[in-house]
């Protein structure tokens, strides 16, 4: 049975799609069969980050409405054959999805994939609820600032009350905290919440801390998930996240500001 993981946040622009793409690709690179689903109907982004936007023929809504089969809509990744993307529709809105049909699609996908990664839209409305409804696990993506933390808290409340698991009284959704755009330097200067602050407020287990990095923007624009940039700190941090999801114990990195070396100090690097 596939693990259904929703990447959610409440607040927009915190890095849900970037994280979905990186984690999905990372899991596939480890030999798992992974499908990435874009639940952000009407604001199709995942295909751009994955670099497959020119190959979209059918989308999630077509599948839901029975206008296309899953196989027609799924886009196989050119880098890793065990990864597929189910893109969102750009022309429809979030009401195009309904619980019953989404459930059927997920069930169908569950037969042939190990991981189903659902990239949630922002907000707490129908679209976000649809993305989290069937989840087994949730990666709550949070920036180290108060409004993002507050929204994540709200979403955690939804996960605990509005999901299928909550409604059926099953074991609750497994929650993971993913802190993105983390800048140890700004934390030290008191401008940003620290990992400890966020953990204290949300009190859910920490899955990973992704440092603020130029590599992320570069990767997004190139359509190459940042996890492929193995030289970048963000890429390495996502790799750690993938390893932790697969059950490994990996020490947390990039939590303290790097001390400048003697040369960079001398030359003002």
């Amino acid at each position: 049975m596939a693990r259904i993981i929703v990447v959610t946040s409440g607040k927009g622009g915190v890095g849900k799609t970037t994280s979905s793409a990186a984690i999905g690709l990372g899991l596939a690179l480890k030999g798992n069969k992974v499908v990435l689903i874009d639940f952000d109907i009407g604001l199709r982004n995942l295909d751009l980050i994955m670099g497959c936007e020119r190959r979209v023929v059918y989308d999630f809504v077509n599948v839901i409405n029975g206008e296309a089969t899953l196989n027609q809509a799924l886009i196989k990744d050119k880098r890793v054959s065990s990864l597929s993307v189910l893109p969102a529709s750009q022309t429809r809105d979030k009401d195009a999805l309904n619980k019953e049909n989404v459930g059927k699609v997920l069930e169908e996908l569950g037969k042939s994939y190990d991981f189903i990664v659902c990239d949630s839209p922002a907000g707490i409305e129908a679209g976000a609820m649809m993305a989290l409804y069937y989840a087994d696990e949730a990666i709550v993506t949070t920036n180290p600032e108060v409004s993002s933390v507050r929204d994540s808290d709200r979403i955690l409340g939804m996960l605990a009350s509005r999901s299928r698991r909550a409604e059926l009284g099953l074991e609750p959704i497994k929650e993971h905290l993913l802190l993105t755009r983390y800048s140890p330097k700004r934390v030290a200067e008191g401008e940003m919440l620290s990992v400890e602050d966020v953990e204290d407020i949300l009190s859910i287990p920490l899955l990973g801390v992704i440092p603020e990095s130029q590599a992320v923007l570069k990767a997004s624009n190139a359509g190459e998930p940042v996890i492929l940039d193995t030289d970048s700190d963000a890429g390495q941090a996502y790799q750690d996240v993938v390893d932790r999801l697969l059950g490994d114990t990996v020490d947390f990195r990039f939590l303290v500001a790097e001390k400048k070396g003697i040369f960079s100090r001398m030359f003002g690097g």
């Binding site: 707490i124 507050r150 808290d153 409340g157």
Partner: peptide, 26 residues
Amino acid sequence: GQIRSGQQIYAKNQNLVVIGSVSAGA
């Protein structure tokens, strides 16, 4: 358990004991 932002708990004719934190916005 924690009471999250946006959640509301009412103990009618009762005391309320929360074993966990009450988040901002709850």
